Simulated scan of single mutants.
Amino acid sequence: MAALIQSALVVGGGFSGMSAAIELRKRGIAVDLVEIDPHWRNYGAGISIGGPTLRAFRTLGILERFLDEGYACDGLDIFSPEGVLLTQVPTPRIAGDEVPGSGAVMRPVLAKILADATRASGTDVRLGCTVSALEQDADGVTVDFSDGSRGRYDLLIGADGLYSGLRERLLPDAPKPRYSGQGVWRAVLPRPASVTRTMLWVGNHLKIGLNPVSRDEMYLFVNEDRPVNDLVPPEEFLTRLKALLDPFTAPEVRNARAMLDEHSLVIFRPLEGLLVEQPWYRGRTVLIGDAVHATTPHLASGACIGIEDAIVLAEELENASSLTAALESFQQRRWERCRLVVENSMRLGEIEINGGDKAEHMRIMHASFAALAQPI
Protein backbone atom coordinates (compact mmCIF):
# COMPACT_ATOMS: atom_id res chain seq x y z
CA MET A 1 0.00 0.00 0.00
CA ALA A 2 1.27 3.48 -0.83
CA ALA A 3 2.25 5.70 2.10
CA LEU A 4 -0.29 8.24 3.30
CA ILE A 5 2.13 11.14 2.90
CA GLN A 6 4.51 12.31 0.22
CA SER A 7 6.74 14.60 2.25
CA ALA A 8 7.95 14.94 5.84
CA LEU A 9 10.12 17.25 7.90
CA VAL A 10 12.16 15.72 10.72
CA VAL A 11 13.28 18.22 13.36
CA GLY A 12 16.33 16.93 15.23
CA GLY A 13 19.32 14.95 14.00
CA GLY A 14 19.70 12.58 16.95
CA PHE A 15 19.23 8.83 16.89
CA SER A 16 15.42 8.97 16.71
CA GLY A 17 15.30 11.66 14.05
CA MET A 18 17.86 10.00 11.81
CA SER A 19 16.08 6.66 12.15
CA ALA A 20 12.78 8.26 11.15
CA ALA A 21 14.39 9.76 8.05
CA ILE A 22 15.91 6.42 7.03
CA GLU A 23 12.65 4.51 7.44
CA LEU A 24 10.51 7.10 5.64
CA ARG A 25 12.91 7.24 2.70
CA LYS A 26 12.62 3.45 2.32
CA ARG A 27 8.95 4.06 1.59
CA GLY A 28 9.59 6.70 -1.04
CA ILE A 29 8.69 9.69 1.13
CA ALA A 30 10.63 12.91 0.51
CA VAL A 31 12.35 13.86 3.77
CA ASP A 32 14.05 17.03 4.95
CA LEU A 33 15.93 16.82 8.26
CA VAL A 34 16.99 19.95 10.12
CA GLU A 35 19.49 19.91 12.98
CA ILE A 36 20.28 23.05 14.95
CA ASP A 37 23.93 22.09 15.60
CA PRO A 38 25.91 23.15 12.51
CA HIS A 39 28.51 20.45 13.26
CA TRP A 40 25.98 17.63 13.92
CA ARG A 41 27.91 16.59 17.01
CA ASN A 42 27.03 13.81 19.44
CA TYR A 43 28.59 14.15 22.84
CA GLY A 44 29.32 11.40 25.32
CA ALA A 45 31.33 8.28 25.84
CA GLY A 46 29.79 4.88 25.35
CA ILE A 47 26.19 3.78 24.98
CA SER A 48 25.00 0.34 26.05
CA ILE A 49 23.07 -1.61 23.43
CA GLY A 50 20.52 -4.34 24.18
CA GLY A 51 19.09 -7.06 21.99
CA PRO A 52 16.02 -5.00 21.02
CA THR A 53 18.31 -2.22 19.83
CA LEU A 54 20.31 -4.68 17.74
CA ARG A 55 17.02 -5.90 16.24
CA ALA A 56 16.17 -2.28 15.38
CA PHE A 57 19.62 -1.83 13.82
CA ARG A 58 18.88 -4.79 11.56
CA THR A 59 15.65 -3.12 10.45
CA LEU A 60 17.47 0.15 9.78
CA GLY A 61 20.16 -1.66 7.80
CA ILE A 62 23.10 -0.66 10.02
CA LEU A 63 23.62 -3.85 12.02
CA GLU A 64 26.65 -5.10 10.08
CA ARG A 65 28.45 -1.80 10.42
CA PHE A 66 27.66 -1.68 14.15
CA LEU A 67 29.08 -5.18 14.60
CA ASP A 68 32.24 -4.06 12.81
CA GLU A 69 32.76 -0.74 14.62
CA GLY A 70 31.10 -1.40 17.99
CA TYR A 71 31.09 -4.42 20.27
CA ALA A 72 28.54 -7.19 20.74
CA CYS A 73 28.45 -9.77 23.55
CA ASP A 74 26.12 -11.98 25.57
CA GLY A 75 25.02 -11.52 29.17
CA LEU A 76 25.57 -9.20 32.10
CA ASP A 77 27.47 -9.93 35.33
CA ILE A 78 26.65 -8.15 38.61
CA PHE A 79 29.16 -8.14 41.49
CA SER A 80 29.60 -6.81 45.01
CA PRO A 81 32.16 -3.99 45.51
CA GLU A 82 34.71 -6.66 46.44
CA GLY A 83 34.13 -8.62 43.23
CA VAL A 84 31.84 -11.40 44.49
CA LEU A 85 29.46 -12.48 41.71
CA LEU A 86 25.87 -11.74 42.77
CA THR A 87 23.91 -12.67 39.66
CA GLN A 88 24.12 -13.08 35.92
CA VAL A 89 21.46 -11.56 33.67
CA PRO A 90 20.98 -13.27 30.30
CA THR A 91 20.57 -11.19 27.15
CA PRO A 92 18.64 -13.30 24.61
CA ARG A 93 19.75 -13.26 20.99
CA ILE A 94 16.60 -11.63 19.65
CA ALA A 95 18.27 -9.96 16.64
CA GLY A 96 19.12 -13.37 15.17
CA ASP A 97 20.80 -16.58 16.25
CA GLU A 98 24.13 -15.32 14.95
CA VAL A 99 23.92 -11.90 16.68
CA PRO A 100 24.91 -11.58 20.37
CA GLY A 101 22.24 -10.31 22.73
CA SER A 102 23.85 -7.05 23.85
CA GLY A 103 26.81 -4.74 23.35
CA ALA A 104 27.97 -1.15 23.34
CA VAL A 105 29.45 1.49 21.07
CA MET A 106 30.91 4.96 21.35
CA ARG A 107 28.13 7.52 20.93
CA PRO A 108 29.95 9.50 18.22
CA VAL A 109 30.59 6.24 16.32
CA LEU A 110 26.90 5.31 16.35
CA ALA A 111 25.97 8.87 15.38
CA LYS A 112 28.34 8.67 12.39
CA ILE A 113 26.90 5.31 11.32
CA LEU A 114 23.38 6.71 11.41
CA ALA A 115 24.38 10.00 9.78
CA ASP A 116 25.99 8.16 6.88
CA ALA A 117 22.87 6.01 6.47
CA THR A 118 20.66 9.12 6.62
CA ARG A 119 22.57 10.87 3.86
CA ALA A 120 22.74 7.66 1.80
CA SER A 121 18.95 7.34 2.03
CA GLY A 122 18.49 10.54 0.06
CA THR A 123 17.35 12.66 2.99
CA ASP A 124 18.02 16.38 2.52
CA VAL A 125 20.00 17.28 5.65
CA ARG A 126 20.24 20.94 6.68
CA LEU A 127 22.56 21.78 9.55
CA GLY A 128 22.56 24.89 11.72
CA CYS A 129 18.85 25.22 11.10
CA THR A 130 15.62 24.62 13.01
CA VAL A 131 11.94 25.57 13.03
CA SER A 132 11.13 29.13 14.08
CA ALA A 133 7.36 28.99 13.39
CA LEU A 134 4.80 26.57 12.03
CA GLU A 135 1.18 26.69 10.92
CA GLN A 136 -0.99 23.65 10.35
CA ASP A 137 -4.13 23.16 8.28
CA ALA A 138 -6.10 20.14 7.11
CA ASP A 139 -3.72 19.43 4.24
CA GLY A 140 -0.25 20.10 5.61
CA VAL A 141 2.21 22.03 7.76
CA THR A 142 3.85 25.28 6.67
CA VAL A 143 7.17 25.89 8.38
CA ASP A 144 9.33 28.97 8.77
CA PHE A 145 12.98 28.07 9.34
CA SER A 146 15.60 29.91 11.36
CA ASP A 147 17.62 30.58 8.20
CA GLY A 148 14.75 32.59 6.73
CA SER A 149 13.48 29.93 4.35
CA ARG A 150 10.03 28.33 4.30
CA GLY A 151 8.73 24.86 3.50
CA ARG A 152 5.51 22.89 3.37
CA TYR A 153 5.12 19.24 4.36
CA ASP A 154 2.49 16.57 4.79
CA LEU A 155 3.88 15.65 8.24
CA LEU A 156 6.27 17.18 10.78
CA ILE A 157 8.13 14.80 13.11
CA GLY A 158 9.56 16.37 16.25
CA ALA A 159 12.65 14.50 17.43
CA ASP A 160 14.32 17.42 19.17
CA GLY A 161 15.15 15.75 22.45
CA LEU A 162 14.57 16.10 26.17
CA TYR A 163 14.27 19.88 26.07
CA SER A 164 12.11 19.86 22.94
CA GLY A 165 11.04 23.25 21.70
CA LEU A 166 8.31 21.60 19.64
CA ARG A 167 6.90 19.96 22.77
CA GLU A 168 6.73 23.36 24.44
CA ARG A 169 4.85 24.71 21.41
CA LEU A 170 2.48 21.80 20.80
CA LEU A 171 1.93 20.47 24.32
CA PRO A 172 2.44 23.45 26.64
CA ASP A 173 0.92 21.57 29.60
CA ALA A 174 3.27 18.59 29.26
CA PRO A 175 5.47 17.80 32.28
CA LYS A 176 9.00 19.13 32.48
CA PRO A 177 12.04 16.84 32.71
CA ARG A 178 12.41 15.51 36.25
CA TYR A 179 15.75 15.08 38.01
CA SER A 180 16.07 11.52 39.30
CA GLY A 181 18.41 12.08 42.25
CA GLN A 182 21.35 10.46 40.47
CA GLY A 183 24.11 11.52 38.15
CA VAL A 184 26.22 9.45 35.78
CA TRP A 185 29.96 9.64 35.17
CA ARG A 186 31.47 8.17 32.02
CA ALA A 187 35.00 7.71 30.75
CA VAL A 188 36.75 5.87 27.92
CA LEU A 189 39.60 3.46 28.68
CA PRO A 190 41.70 0.77 26.99
CA ARG A 191 39.96 -2.60 27.18
CA PRO A 192 41.80 -5.36 29.06
CA ALA A 193 41.39 -8.87 27.67
CA SER A 194 39.45 -9.83 30.84
CA VAL A 195 36.58 -7.43 30.07
CA THR A 196 34.55 -9.29 27.47
CA ARG A 197 31.00 -8.26 28.39
CA THR A 198 29.10 -5.84 30.62
CA MET A 199 30.16 -5.96 34.28
CA LEU A 200 28.45 -4.11 37.15
CA TRP A 201 29.57 -3.58 40.77
CA VAL A 202 26.79 -2.48 43.12
CA GLY A 203 27.64 -0.64 46.33
CA ASN A 204 25.84 1.70 48.70
CA HIS A 205 24.61 4.71 46.72
CA LEU A 206 27.00 3.89 43.88
CA LYS A 207 26.98 1.56 40.87
CA ILE A 208 30.02 1.04 38.65
CA GLY A 209 30.05 -0.56 35.22
CA LEU A 210 32.51 -1.53 32.53
CA ASN A 211 31.36 -2.17 28.99
CA PRO A 212 33.46 -2.93 25.89
CA VAL A 213 32.72 -0.52 23.03
CA SER A 214 35.19 -1.87 20.44
CA ARG A 215 38.01 -4.38 20.08
CA ASP A 216 40.37 -2.03 21.91
CA GLU A 217 38.26 0.25 24.13
CA MET A 218 35.71 0.08 26.93
CA TYR A 219 33.74 2.69 28.74
CA LEU A 220 33.47 3.13 32.46
CA PHE A 221 30.19 4.39 33.90
CA VAL A 222 29.36 5.29 37.48
CA ASN A 223 25.84 6.03 38.76
CA GLU A 224 26.13 8.27 41.81
CA ASP A 225 23.34 9.26 44.19
CA ARG A 226 23.22 13.07 44.26
CA PRO A 227 20.35 14.55 46.32
CA VAL A 228 21.04 18.02 44.92
CA ASN A 229 21.53 18.64 41.21
CA ASP A 230 24.39 21.06 41.71
CA LEU A 231 27.01 22.08 39.18
CA VAL A 232 30.16 19.96 38.96
CA PRO A 233 33.06 22.01 37.54
CA PRO A 234 34.63 20.18 34.57
CA GLU A 235 38.12 20.72 35.94
CA GLU A 236 37.13 18.51 38.89
CA PHE A 237 35.71 15.62 36.82
CA LEU A 238 38.80 13.40 36.87
CA THR A 239 39.58 13.87 40.57
CA ARG A 240 35.98 13.29 41.64
CA LEU A 241 35.57 10.18 39.50
CA LYS A 242 38.73 8.61 40.90
CA ALA A 243 37.54 9.30 44.44
CA LEU A 244 34.21 7.58 43.75
CA LEU A 245 36.05 4.41 42.74
CA ASP A 246 38.21 4.29 45.87
CA PRO A 247 35.90 2.13 48.07
CA PHE A 248 35.64 -0.64 45.44
CA THR A 249 38.33 -3.31 45.79
CA ALA A 250 37.38 -5.54 42.85
CA PRO A 251 40.51 -5.96 40.68
CA GLU A 252 38.81 -4.79 37.47
CA VAL A 253 37.65 -1.57 39.15
CA ARG A 254 41.07 -0.91 40.65
CA ASN A 255 42.64 -1.41 37.25
CA ALA A 256 40.16 0.97 35.62
CA ARG A 257 40.91 3.61 38.24
CA ALA A 258 44.61 3.30 37.62
CA MET A 259 44.12 3.92 33.90
CA LEU A 260 42.07 7.11 34.32
CA ASP A 261 43.90 10.24 33.19
CA GLU A 262 43.34 13.48 31.32
CA HIS A 263 42.90 11.54 28.05
CA SER A 264 39.97 9.45 29.36
CA LEU A 265 37.23 11.80 28.10
CA VAL A 266 35.59 11.98 31.52
CA ILE A 267 32.09 13.48 31.45
CA PHE A 268 29.29 13.93 33.95
CA ARG A 269 25.59 14.62 33.61
CA PRO A 270 22.56 14.55 35.89
CA LEU A 271 20.02 11.82 35.14
CA GLU A 272 16.60 13.11 34.15
CA GLY A 273 13.41 11.48 32.93
CA LEU A 274 10.17 12.43 31.23
CA LEU A 275 6.96 10.63 30.26
CA VAL A 276 4.32 12.65 28.42
CA GLU A 277 0.76 11.36 28.48
CA GLN A 278 -0.77 10.79 25.08
CA PRO A 279 -1.65 12.18 22.63
CA TRP A 280 1.84 12.74 21.26
CA TYR A 281 0.54 14.50 18.18
CA ARG A 282 -1.45 17.57 17.21
CA GLY A 283 -2.84 17.67 13.70
CA ARG A 284 0.01 16.82 11.34
CA THR A 285 2.81 17.16 13.87
CA VAL A 286 3.96 14.18 15.99
CA LEU A 287 6.65 13.90 18.67
CA ILE A 288 8.95 10.89 19.09
CA GLY A 289 11.93 9.81 21.19
CA ASP A 290 13.19 11.80 24.16
CA ALA A 291 10.75 14.60 23.34
CA VAL A 292 7.99 12.46 24.90
CA HIS A 293 9.68 9.60 26.79
CA ALA A 294 13.18 10.32 28.07
CA THR A 295 14.60 7.71 30.44
CA THR A 296 17.47 7.21 32.81
CA PRO A 297 19.98 4.58 31.59
CA HIS A 298 19.20 1.82 34.10
CA LEU A 299 17.77 -0.50 31.41
CA ALA A 300 20.09 0.67 28.60
CA SER A 301 17.00 1.24 26.44
CA GLY A 302 16.61 4.99 25.87
CA ALA A 303 18.06 5.00 22.37
CA CYS A 304 16.24 1.75 21.64
CA ILE A 305 12.73 3.00 22.27
CA GLY A 306 13.39 6.20 20.31
CA ILE A 307 14.64 4.25 17.29
CA GLU A 308 11.68 1.89 17.61
CA ASP A 309 9.37 4.92 17.52
CA ALA A 310 10.75 5.77 14.10
CA ILE A 311 10.30 2.24 12.79
CA VAL A 312 6.73 1.91 14.07
CA LEU A 313 5.71 5.35 12.81
CA ALA A 314 6.94 4.52 9.31
CA GLU A 315 5.11 1.17 9.36
CA GLU A 316 1.83 2.79 10.40
CA LEU A 317 2.15 5.51 7.77
CA GLU A 318 2.52 2.76 5.20
CA ASN A 319 -0.36 0.58 6.37
CA ALA A 320 -3.07 2.76 7.95
CA SER A 321 -6.15 4.07 6.15
CA SER A 322 -5.71 7.70 7.20
CA LEU A 323 -3.09 9.92 8.79
CA THR A 324 -5.08 10.17 12.02
CA ALA A 325 -5.45 6.40 12.13
CA ALA A 326 -1.69 6.02 11.55
CA LEU A 327 -0.80 8.37 14.39
CA GLU A 328 -3.32 6.73 16.74
CA SER A 329 -1.97 3.25 15.94
CA PHE A 330 1.58 4.51 16.41
CA GLN A 331 0.68 5.72 19.90
CA GLN A 332 -1.12 2.53 20.86
CA ARG A 333 1.83 0.38 19.82
CA ARG A 334 4.37 2.54 21.61
CA TRP A 335 2.77 3.57 24.90
CA GLU A 336 3.14 0.50 27.09
CA ARG A 337 6.67 -0.26 25.94
CA CYS A 338 7.90 3.30 26.48
CA ARG A 339 6.07 3.61 29.81
CA LEU A 340 7.70 0.40 31.02
CA VAL A 341 11.20 1.63 30.19
CA VAL A 342 10.78 5.09 31.74
CA GLU A 343 8.98 4.00 34.90
CA ASN A 344 11.00 0.84 35.56
CA SER A 345 14.25 2.72 35.02
CA MET A 346 13.13 5.37 37.50
CA ARG A 347 12.17 2.65 39.99
CA LEU A 348 15.58 0.99 39.67
CA GLY A 349 17.18 4.34 40.48
CA GLU A 350 14.91 4.80 43.50
CA ILE A 351 15.89 1.39 44.85
CA GLU A 352 19.56 2.25 44.45
CA ILE A 353 19.13 5.63 46.15
CA ASN A 354 17.14 4.26 49.08
CA GLY A 355 19.19 1.10 49.58
CA GLY A 356 16.05 -0.87 48.80
CA ASP A 357 15.31 -4.49 48.09
CA LYS A 358 18.00 -5.91 45.79
CA ALA A 359 15.71 -8.82 44.97
CA GLU A 360 13.14 -6.34 43.63
CA HIS A 361 15.90 -4.66 41.63
CA MET A 362 16.80 -8.00 40.02
CA ARG A 363 13.16 -8.88 39.37
CA ILE A 364 12.56 -5.58 37.59
CA MET A 365 15.64 -5.99 35.41
CA HIS A 366 14.77 -9.57 34.42
CA ALA A 367 11.10 -8.75 33.78
CA SER A 368 11.94 -5.62 31.79
CA PHE A 369 14.42 -7.37 29.54
CA ALA A 370 11.91 -10.17 28.92
CA ALA A 371 9.21 -7.65 27.97
CA LEU A 372 11.54 -5.72 25.68
CA ALA A 373 12.46 -8.93 23.87
CA GLN A 374 8.89 -9.16 22.58
CA PRO A 375 8.07 -7.89 19.06
CA ILE A 376 7.36 -4.19 18.70
Rank of each mutant, 00 (worst) to 15 (best):
C338W: 00
E352P: 07
H298F: 14
R333E: 12
I351Y: 03
A359T: 15
I307F: 00
T324A: 13
I288L: 14
G283R: 09
H366D: 11
A314V: 08
A367M: 10
I305K: 03
E316C: 11
Q332G: 11
S301P: 08
M259N: 02
L323R: 03
C338K: 00
V276K: 05
A370I: 04
A371I: 03
S322A: 03
I288K: 03
A367H: 08
E350I: 03
P297H: 06
N319G: 07
F330G: 15
Q278I: 08
A258I: 00
I288P: 08
H366L: 15
I307G: 08
H293A: 08
E262S: 15
R257I: 04
R339T: 06
E262G: 15
D290L: 00
K358G: 07
G349M: 02
A359P: 00
C338M: 07
D309L: 04
A325P: 07
P279Y: 10
R339V: 10
L340E: 04
E350S: 15
L313P: 14
Y281I: 00
E336W: 01
F330R: 03
N344G: 03
G356T: 09
L313T: 07
E308K: 05
L348Q: 06
L287P: 14
M362P: 01
S301A: 15
G349C: 07
I305P: 11
W335A: 00
H366T: 10
M362S: 14
T296C: 09
Q331F: 02
V286G: 10
M362W: 13
E360L: 12
L317C: 04
A300N: 03
E336H: 08
A326C: 03
M365S: 12
H366I: 14
I351F: 07
A310G: 09
A258S: 10
E343S: 08
E350A: 08
R333A: 14
E315A: 12
M365G: 05
E277R: 06
F330C: 05
A294M: 01
F369P: 00
I364R: 15
L340Y: 05
R339Y: 12
V266F: 04
R347S: 05
A326H: 07
N319K: 13
R333C: 14
R337I: 02
E277C: 02
F369K: 06
S329H: 13
L372I: 02
P270T: 11
E262L: 06
S321E: 14
R339I: 10
Q331E: 13
E272N: 04
V276N: 05
P270R: 01
V266W: 14
D357Q: 08
R363D: 13
H298P: 06
I267M: 11
I311C: 03
G349S: 12
H361V: 03
R337A: 05
E336S: 15
I307M: 13
K358R: 14
G349Q: 06
V286T: 10
R282H: 12
P297A: 10
L327A: 02
I353E: 13
H293K: 03
L372E: 11
L313H: 05
N354G: 01
Q331N: 11
L299H: 10
A359N: 10
T324Y: 12
E272F: 06
E316D: 14
L372S: 14
A371V: 06
R334H: 09
E352I: 01
R363E: 13
T296K: 00
H361P: 01
S301D: 09
N319P: 06
Q331D: 04
E315C: 04
R284D: 08
E350W: 04
A325G: 14
